[in-house]
Design a protein around this nucleic acid. Structure first.
Length: 880
RNA sequence: GGGCGCGUAGCUCAGCUGGUAGAGCACCUGGUUUACACCCAGGGGGUCGGCGGUUCGAUCCCGUCCGCGCCUACCA
């Protein structure tokens, strides 16, 4: 005796109950020891900074779809969960939190501050996990990892030490992007360009010998304090006579040379460039090439230092103002123009980035990039959509060394110790007690930590126990799929590939799925700082988790962003409700159903829906294999709504009320089979509602859907039966069209007459036609239609719909006229094609043949419509 | 400045290898039929951004222009 379902589905209590039950049953656990084929993924570890956003919801829904799908296919699945310490981001939020209490991290000191961050991590890391679980994700939570876990920290040290030993990690003075607010170096990736409306200042530099002056232009006039040359293009006839002469640096009076360098663009400004090697990336390169002095004019906090002479201790903005004023006063400022350009800002705190000279740890990338590039080129790693591969190639081919040190407190502290005696570095996995170079015990550890992405790059194997040769690693590494956002291809994906190849000898994953970016209704990128965004927890609260998951899945198209407004959720919710109600209908009709009794011969309609289900599930699986999540969702949606509910359930009602016990039982059994099949197929997308319904089906056995598998393929339908069903659908639809166009109410049953040739068809489907098209019992005769009949041509039969009311004649005339217009239009197009000799000659024969058939069909249709119309007009004319 | 992508019904978007355009929502009409008004049945609505080209035939291929977006870049 099946359970009853409530009139309405109430998601929340079901979600919490089921998730707990799944966990208790250990359904997400990856055993590592068994013999089934394996499928593994690592979660892109969310930052412990804050809360889950809609992008996470999308990405993790899609991963969960894959994980559950593979389980239903019989795979041993590991989906490895965890979180990321997110160096700068987390440090910044904790500092902001401290600032509310009027404290800075320096008030606490390093150790205490780091303790504070761990507290933050404990709190928000747990919250993130809760939110992921609310989404229903089936990660193996017993294996949850954090990038600063002891094991992962050991992996980080191991990698650092090995790379250092291989000469791939080195220290160097370099012009880095510096955030004066965070007082740390930023990678290129962490300092995005933003448009700024600046000014272009034209400044006059006088020649020392008094023979004239050169004008240069700059957007950052304060940097002239650090100028050590002015450069011109060697082939520039305006200036090359002056090369080698000296200029008097304005304000400070220093003598600087005029140098030649081809990096100068002769067409920009005056063709002469001031060179500030310590504060501009291009000038730095130029300075290196020419051996120019490098004068650093900045303190790490962004104020000017003593090298700036009278401008010392001003911050950059103040110094600029004063420099400009002083230049102007001395008549050296010869022009100011508006100048819009793009300037790097700190990705985390939006502060203007300053290029600054400093000693940093670097990682040599070119040797690592080569195999990673080849892996994608040769198709061993595939990006989906493929279009991202070009972006990947471009970046990898032009890869630069990676500045890996960060002047932060939160993160993996660099395992390098500096000797006070010999000034050498000792790099070691275990904390050393003395210098390996001179044996001195006067060593102190580097205070810098590693860029967050350093540990993220190891994630696929560090989470599985590397560098130990663990069972987990052997079983689940390399992983199969990585699903992530496209904007971190370089930050993360490329680096995982490089590190994976280098340290494990294997590519860390085969397929990389880049999910679409979610934007708001106006197409803006979601952003916490601008307050643009939708909280997935709100969405789940209002519409239910299944509805959100279904909606997100059906929006996940390859290569296109998603515009998300709350309104699109309605469709998902409606679908959940539809499924629920279909199940309610089934259960109402299964009260006396015995799951163990044998099922006799299934009816035509039963076999049809089983066949349709087979096709739908197969299509959905192909779509999933190709990461076409939207297609998978849509295929199943259409099957459930457009075929199961719209047609099969309506057809089944006939059998269910039938006095033929065998027919009734077959329909009951089919209903159970199809419903369970549909629920299973939808389970990866909508895990909660499907499991909830499945538990009340009469064949429930206490197992969850995930403990079962997809329905077996096979309940085939022969081609002839399929055509028979197509004909039925068309007949019913055509009758409904006539009814609809004449606005007949449901209560009006119309008479329908088929030609004698259709007798067998009518006998087979009489009950269905009556019920679905709301007709009187259909008859078969070849008599001409009565004056008040509407005639439609379907399946080659002239079908008469008796209207029994002269009032409808006018409507019918209008309907036929419209019909005639349509047929004539189609006829014209088809005829034109066939009249074209080159079409008949050159088009594929089967296409020509199809056109010919279409032509004759249309001609017959036209004849019938026309004849009918004439008759009606005559009849109408005769009456009035 | 380069590279990539997008522009299809009022809205949000599907349309794999070229053969007379689809869905959901919205809109209009009619509906309490053994689940579902978050529903059922029917309907209207598109020169597939513009212009050229290839082809018997182009939303789909090529060129170009217009309008968006993303990535990337050393014009100070």
């Amino acid at each position: 005796m099946p359970a009853e379902l409530d009139k309405r589905f109430d998601p929340k209590p079901v979600e919490t109950r089921l998730y707990r039950a799944w966990m208790e049953r250990g359904l997400f656990r990856a055993p590592a020891g068994d013999t089934r084929p394996r499928f593994s993924m690592v979660i892109p570890p969310p930052n412990v900074t804050g809360a889950l956003h809609l992008g996470h919801a999308l990405n993790n829904t899609l991963q969960d779809v894959l994980a559950r799908h593979k389980r239903l296919l019989g795979f041993d699945v590991l989906w490895m969960p965890g979180t990321d310490h997110a160096g700068i981001s987390t440090q910044v939020v904790v500092e902001k939190d401290l600032a509310k209490r009027g404290l800075t991290r320096h008030d606490l000191g390093r150790e205490q501050f780091v303790d504070q961050v761990w507290e933050w991590k404990a709190k928000y890391g747990a919250r993130i996990v809760e939110q992921l679980q609310a989404l229903g994700v089936s990660c193996d939570w017993e294996r949850e990892r954090f990038t600063m876990d002891p094991g992962l920290s050991r992996a980080v040290r191991e990698v650092f030490v090995r790379l250092h030993r291989e000469g791939l990690i080195y220290r160097s003075e370099y012009l880095v992007s510096w955030c004066p607010r965070c007082t740390t170096v930023l990678s290129d990736l962490e300092s995005p360009y933003k448009p700024v409306n600046g000014k272009l200042y034209k400044i006059k530099y006088a020649l020392v010998d008094g023979s004239g002056a050169i004008e240069v232009e700059t957007t950052r006039p304060e940097t002239l304090l650090g100028d050590t040359a002015v450069a011109v293009h060697p082939d520039d006839e305006r200036w090359n006579a002056l090369i080698g002469k000296s200029l008097r640096l304005p304000l400070l009076g220093r003598e600087i040379p005029i140098v030649a360098d081809t990096f100068v663009d002769r067409d920009f400004g005056t063709g002469a460039v001031k060179v500030t090697p310590a504060h501009d990336p291009h000038d730095f390169e130029c300075g290196r090439r020419l051996g120019l002095a490098m004068i650093n004019i900045l303190h790490p906090d962004g104020r000017l230092n003593d090298a700036a002479g009278p401008y010392a201790n001003l911050d950059v903005a103040e110094a600029r103002k004063k420099v400009v004023a002083d230049l102007d006063a001395q008549g050296l400022l010869t022009g100011v123009t508006e100048h819009a350009h793009e300037v790097p800002h700190c990705d985390r705190c939006d502060t203007l980035v300053q290029p600054l000279l400093s000693e940093q740890w670097f990682m040599r990338m070119a040797p690592l990039a080569a195999p990673a590039l080849a892996a994608v080129r040769e198709g061993h790693v595939r990006l989906h959509p493929k279009s991202w591969e070009n972006t990947y190639y471009h970046w990898m081919e032009n890869i630069r060394d990676w500045a890996i040190s960060r002047q932060l407190w939160w993160g993996h502290r660099i395992p390098a110790w500096k000797c006070a005696a010999c000034d050498e570095w000792t790099v070691a996995i275990e904390d050393p007690t003395q210098c390996t170079h001179c044996g001195s015990t006067e060593i102190t550890q580097e205070s810098d930590v590693l860029d967050t992405w350093f540990s993220s790059a190891l994630w696929p194997f560090s989470t599985m126990g590397w560098p130990d040769d663990t069972e987990t690693l052997r079983a689940y590494y390399p992983t199969n799929v990585l699903s992530t956002a496209a904007d971190i291809i370089f930050f993360w994906v490329a680096r995982m590939i490089m590190m994976g190849v280098h340290f494990t000898g294997s590519l860390p994953f085969r397929d990389v799925y880049l999910h679409p970016l979610i934007r708001d209704e106006q197409g803006r990128k979601f952003s916490k700082s601008k307050g643009i965004g939708i909280d997935p927890l709100d969405v789940m609260g209002i519409y239910g988790t299944d509805a959100m998951r279904f909606t997100l899945t059906s929006l996940a198209v390859q290569g296109r962003d998603i515009r998300f407004g709350m309104q699109v959720m309605e469709g998902g919710r409606a679908f959940v409700t539809k499924l629920w109600n279909a199940a309610r209908f089934a259960l109402m009709n299964l009260a006396d159903y015995d799951a163990n009794a044998s099922v006799g011969e299934r009816g035509l309609y039963d076999r049809w829906i089983l066949h349709r289900m087979d096709v739908a599930i197969a299509d959905a699986h192909v779509a999933l294999d190709e990461f076409r999540f939207n297609d998978a969702a849509q295929t199943l949606y259409h099957f459930v709504w457009g075929e199961l509910c719209d047609w099969y359930i309506e057809l089944a009602k006939i059998a269910l009320q039938s006095s033929d016990e065998a027919q009734r039982r077959a329909a009951q059994a089919t209903l159970v089979t199809v419903l369970r099949g549909a629920l299973t197929a939808l389970h990866p997308i909508m895990p909660f509602v499907t499991d909830e319904i499945a538990a009340s089906l009469p064949d429930a056995d206490g197992r969850f859907l995930m403990e079962r598998s997809y329905p077996e393929r096979g309940a085939g339908l022969d081609a002839e039966s399929a055509r028979d069903l197509d004909a039925l659908v068309e007949v019913v639809t055509r009758i409904r069209q006539v009814r609809g166009e004449l606005d007949l109410p449901q209560s009006t049953l119309v008479g329908v007459a088929f030609p004698i040739a259709a007798t067998a068809f009518v006998q087979r489907h009489s009950a269905a036609i009556r019920a679905l098209a709301r007709t009187a019992p259909p008859t078969c005769s070849d008599e001409p239609p009565s004056p008040t009949a509407s005639v439609v041509l379907v399946q080659g039969w002239s079908l008469r719909v008796e209207l029994d009311d002269p009032r409808f004649v006018a409507d019918e005339v209008r309907r036929l006229e419209k019909e005639l217009l349509r047929v004539d239009k189609d006829l014209a197009i088809t005829a034109k094609k066939l009249d074209n000799p080159s079409f008949v000659e050159r088009a594929k024969p089967e296409v020509v043949q199809a056109e010919r058939e279409k032509l004759s069909q249309l001609q017959a249709e036209r004849g019938s419509v026309h004849e009918r119309l004439e008759k009606l007009r005559r009849a109408a004319g005769g009456e009035t």
